[in-house]
């Protein structure tokens, strides 16, 4: 009897051990992927710098990777990514934060029940659909409306990307607002503040860094987006002089050229180097977001 009990106990311990290992392995798998990605990016991109100086790679004004001799300056691609991202921010920050405020503070139960799923659906639309919409609908309309030679330009890309990033910003900003304890709101109202005062003087400042995190992560989404910009940004590898110039952001360059670049060629390595740049940029964005959100949690006394 007792021997059986001991045996059972041993089995349970064994099983628990096995589970622990299983899940630890799964958890570490993502770490392995990360290390693998970084390793691949580095080994595949470093050969470029033996042929091209890093400064002329980063700041060179021309991108003719298949010309003879090739010119590989990614400055036009970097500026394009920044221009399009900045433009997208101008679109998605006011709309996203405004939506979050509306849903959280003003909307009635029915409006909320309607708006939240709408935003989630917007977030769930594949980026290629946005791209197609931008290319076939938005670009021609803007072209006629603004009298520009082509609608496929940084402005259109910003607009479409901005719409794409809006759900990210809206739902994260809404989370930030709902993280503000109800007690702050009650304290303010109990002191005779009206809703607007409570919102602007207590809720918004308390949610401020959470909202910044939302904005930064929205930015991360815009920087990394590929399919949409490939279809609507125009694809001209040139430092844009105005918002209405066609541009070729880093992501769409990789997407458009990787399929055709000969494996192991300089062009192939250069595309990996662009990938490395993108990785560093998004890493930086995420680190900043993490720092800010940690500060936010400390401020509200939520702990780490």
């Amino acid at each position: 009897m007792s021997a059986m009990k001991i045996q059972r106990k041993a089995l349970v311990t064994l099983k628990e051990g096995a589970y622990k290992w299983l899940f630890a392995t799964l958890a570490f798998a993502s770490l392995v992927f990360l290390v693998g990605i970084v390793f691949t990016l580095l080994t595949e991109s470093l050969p470029v710098f033996s042929k091209i100086r890093p400064t002329s790679f980063l700041f060179g004004p021309f991108w003719y990777p298949t010309a003879d001799p090739p010119e590989m300056g990614i400055w036009p691609l970097i500026t394009a990514s920044f221009a399009v991202t900045a433009g997208a921010m101008v679109v998605c920050v006011p709309i996203g934060v405004g939506t979050a405020l509306f849903i959280h503070e003003l909307a009635g139960r029915r409006q909320r029940a309607f708006l939240k799923p709408v935003i989630e659906i917007l977030a769930g639309i594949p980026s290629i659909v946005y791209g197609f919409f931008g290319m076939v609908v938005v670009a021609p309309i803007l072209q006629d409306l603004l009298g520009i030679p082509t609608g496929l330009c940084a402005f259109t890309a910003s607009l479409v990307l901005g719409i794409m990033a809006t759900p990210t910003v809206a739902s994260l900003a809404e989370d930030a607002l709902s993280f503000v304890p109800r007690s702050f709101r009650e304290a303010s109202l109990a002191l005779g503040a009206n809703r607007w005062q409570t919102l602007t003087r207590v809720v918004m400042p308390a949610a401020g860094s959470g909202i910044s995190t939302a904005v930064i992560l929205g930015m991360g989404r815009a920087v990394g987006e590929t399919m949409t910009v490939l279809m609507v940004a125009g694809g001209a590898a040139m430092v844009p002089k105005s918002l209405f110039d066609p541009v070729r952001p880093m992501t769409s360059t990789i997407a458009a050229e990787m399929g055709e670049a000969v494996m192991g060629s300089l062009h192939y390595n250069a595309l990996f180097a662009i990938g490395l740049m993108l990785f560093l940029i998004t890493l930086g964005v995420n680190i900043i977001a993490e720092i800010i959100s940690r500060r936010f949690r400390l401020k509200l006394g939520l702990g780490r």
Partner: peptide, 10 residues
Amino acid sequence: KVRPDALSSA
């Protein structure tokens, strides 16, 4: 070389 500001499609 094609002018750098040419639109480029996939």
